[in-house]
Amino acid sequence: MNQPMIQVRNLTKNYTVPERAPGLGASIKSLVKPQFREVEAVKSIHLSIDTGEMVGLIGPNGAGKTTTLKMLSGLLYPTSGEATVAGFIPWKRQPDYLRRISMVMGNRSAMNWDIPPLDSFKVLSEIYRVPQQAYQQTLDELIALLDMEALLKKPVRNLSLGERMKCELVAGLLYQPDVMFLDEPTLGLDIAMQRRLRTFLKKYNDTHAVTVILTSHYMADVTALCPRVILIHHGELIYDGDLDTLAKSLAPFKLIKIQFASPIDNFSEFISQFSSVEELPSEQGHHVLRIPRQEIPQVTATLLEQFPVADLTVEDPPIEAVIDQIYEEGSV
């Protein structure tokens, strides 16, 4: 089958939201004649994702990420447009479709808090009609991968946030879905746990070729897992491609970090002669300069020539800084 796992054409979602001016008079008026406003949450998106791809869906808050994810999983009807996921139209929510996808959310729990995870898993396996043998096999594999043997018999309410997230992942993968929607899976977890979950997802994706769409506020999740990113802003898809290219096209700058052998008095004066170079706050005794890519050779040469340089490095700015910049400027 060469058809893409996820195919989206012209997908659009408008919400009507009630609009009300502040004050008592306006409230009464809105009772009699409510005013509504159309909000375009997602504007005519096109996408195509192949089996086994891991794609990061990024964008600032309110960009339309969650709305897109909900339409693809089948939780929301679109206003217009088409989508097929694993050959199904998601929002019909046919049982055969639902058995092939799973949704894991970092801020919401699908587990029953009063009972140990193992019992919840058992019920889920029956809801998803997983044959007993396959269930046991999948469960063993997941438990080994996530190293969570010890958690299985404790009630979920007694588990830590990270341990609970492991359970959510098992609950979402028990029936071996083909597509996985991960909405902020590492929300609130400590760094070590975030890293462990990423390693797990990477490994699971390698062995099972599950197609993953991931949203996260932690760019580290995206950089570690998703070779391809989709950037949504104000409901529009503004970038679809690999992460490195995005970073380069977005950030036509590099950072130069310099340390001098002896203190320099006229450094600021020197900087001011280049209009395109900006000095950033210094880091650990290094001066940090932001410089357009094409001017790097010239500036570096001048620096080495005029000053007693002890150490000089050229770096790409961190991806978080780049993304922040897009979120602020709103375009690529």
Partner: peptide, 18 residues
Amino acid sequence: WQGTFDFTMLRPVDKQFL
């Protein structure tokens, strides 16, 4: 209230039964 009804919506079982 808690916003976890999404999970119920995605279960491959008749929702009213569930």
